[in-house]
Design a protein around this nucleic acid. Structure first.
Lengths: 264, 264
DNA sequence: CCTGGGTTTCCGTCATTCGGAAGGAGCCCG
DNA sequence: CGGGCTCCTTCCGAATGACGGAAACCCAGG
């Protein structure tokens, strides 16, 4: 069994409160907070008060709560968050300048992708990606890369459960997905052909740490039909390798680089 | 006296643990964590375990702790963090493209500036600014703007306590600082003339919300002597106003209406 | 084999959290 | 102007979960 939370009441509830916030709900009233967290009002009132006094949450003049700057600061210390973003950004910008297309940088968290950075091309296909947002592993360019190199347990989890379909082109057949992942591993890049939206195609490549473990992925997202995947893959792959190299050399704050492996 | 922590033991300690991380200490061993947080080992072990199980912290194979991606995700929901950054970014990039100098975006937290975004010009003066990092209010371009428009209590706090000196040009005299702040308010922009380093000068301007309250500041940082402040101020000011406008339209509902959240 | 660093587990004591309920503060509508 | 609404804040006694010293554990390295 790996599911059990193992969290005491206090912390557990405090974290439930943090979880209540989301992209669609960045500021919440106390009552909403309690409702969304599934906790009694007075409990939320007390805990939220403590969180505010530290700066994890903030209250606007109307009394509504939002995530505090202080929490953002701490969050920005996450090696797989801002740390990664900072090191990769120059290369992502190069990609952006050269292609004028959407560039994405993402890591895997559990059975989902989390987008760490996104540079939107001016006249590129609109992509509904939010920095800090999550998405299914099996459909996007970055997702396919991360899934292909994920521990087998994760792959099986994803393949085993029903795969969400976004377009007629979304690969939902387990066998087909397995083949796709194998291709990603042998080719060194992924292609998501209109799997998320009818008009977009993305090409992703793996970013590795000093040990060769895949820790992140980059991708270019282009309008379907305008560019061939084969034209993009060398570009994406070489950028991914450049970023990988940048990660190696920049590992200054520790004696040895170790691959981050989130557990559940 | 400002305000007592008002935090129960559990949460308080958990937050102390989070505080133990910093730019120079992104990954810590359990013992370090305990030492830096000033807590007994077993306590930290227990609490950190809970935090890990939720994803607020992560452990690498070596058992060392770092800030978890999950916390970064939640942090990215902070309106004054990523929210602000996202809306301002296009304008910051324009500034960067036009001038090829360093562009900074910051907000005030207590008696310090917190940098929310920084775009480094290729061949611009090196600036030691880190996104998510803090700095004294009284010296930088952004800091002067934020201080000039801060509540009087904050201004007095800063002016009252000893002002840190970075260069011979740093303004540390209370009266002089007061005059400087008054200038900032009347001129609508600030100039930090070699106050942080001998070779840098920065010009900052205020960003306001729908109510006219100053909520953030932008600045350009250039090498001293290359450009006159007067040449920069119109540019910085107009960018600041553009960003202010972008904040208004983007759904800053005061206390009136139900939040019409724009999705994409 | 032993020494020393960090890590994990245990468990009796007792300080802290819990949350229902009651009291305010606005706001809208008739 | 008053009654009803929703949302916010404060209180306090019961009992539950937190606390952390101490001891076992697990390596490396000498």
């Amino acid at each position: 069994m790996v599911k059990r939370a193992a969290t005491g009441p206090v912390l557990g509830r405090a974290l439930l409160i943090l979880e209540a916030f989301g992209p669609r709900h960045t500021t919440l009233t106390l009552t909403d907070l309690a409702r969304r967290a599934g906790l009694p009002l007075s409990t939320v009132h007390r805990l939220a008060g403590e969180l505010v006094s530290w700066g994890a949450l903030e209250r606007d003049p109307g009394g509504r709560y939002s995530v505090g700057l202080r929490l953002w600061e701490v969050g920005s210390l996450a090696p797989r968050g801002l740390g990664l973003r900072e090191r990769a950004l120059p290369y992502l910008e190069d990609l952006s300048q050269v292609t004028h297309e959407n560039v994405q940088l993402a890591v895997r968290e559990g059975a989902e992708v989390v987008f760490v950075e996104r540079i939107a091309g001016r006249r590129a296909v609109p992509v509904h990606t939010r920095v800090g947002g999550r998405f299914a592993l099996s459909a996007t360019g970055v997702g396919l890369v991360l899934l292909a190199h994920a521990p087998v347990a994760v792959q099986e989890e994803v393949i085993g459960s029903a795969i969400e379909r976004f377009t007629p082109h979304t690969v939902t057949d387990p066998a087909a997905l397995r083949r796709l992942l194998a291709d990603v591993r042998t080719n060194g890049f992924s292609v998501s052909d209109r799997q998320v939206t009818e008009d977009a195609l993305s090409v992703g490549a793996p970013i590795r740490d000093a040990h060769g473990t895949v820790v992140a992925a980059v991708s270019l997202v282009v309008r379907y039909g305008t560019v061939s995947p084969h034209a993009l893959s060398p570009l994406v792959r070489s950028s991914a390798r450049a970023i990988s190299r940048a990660l190696d050399t920049a590992g200054s704050d520790s004696t040895k680089q170790a691959p981050p492996e989130p557990l559940r």
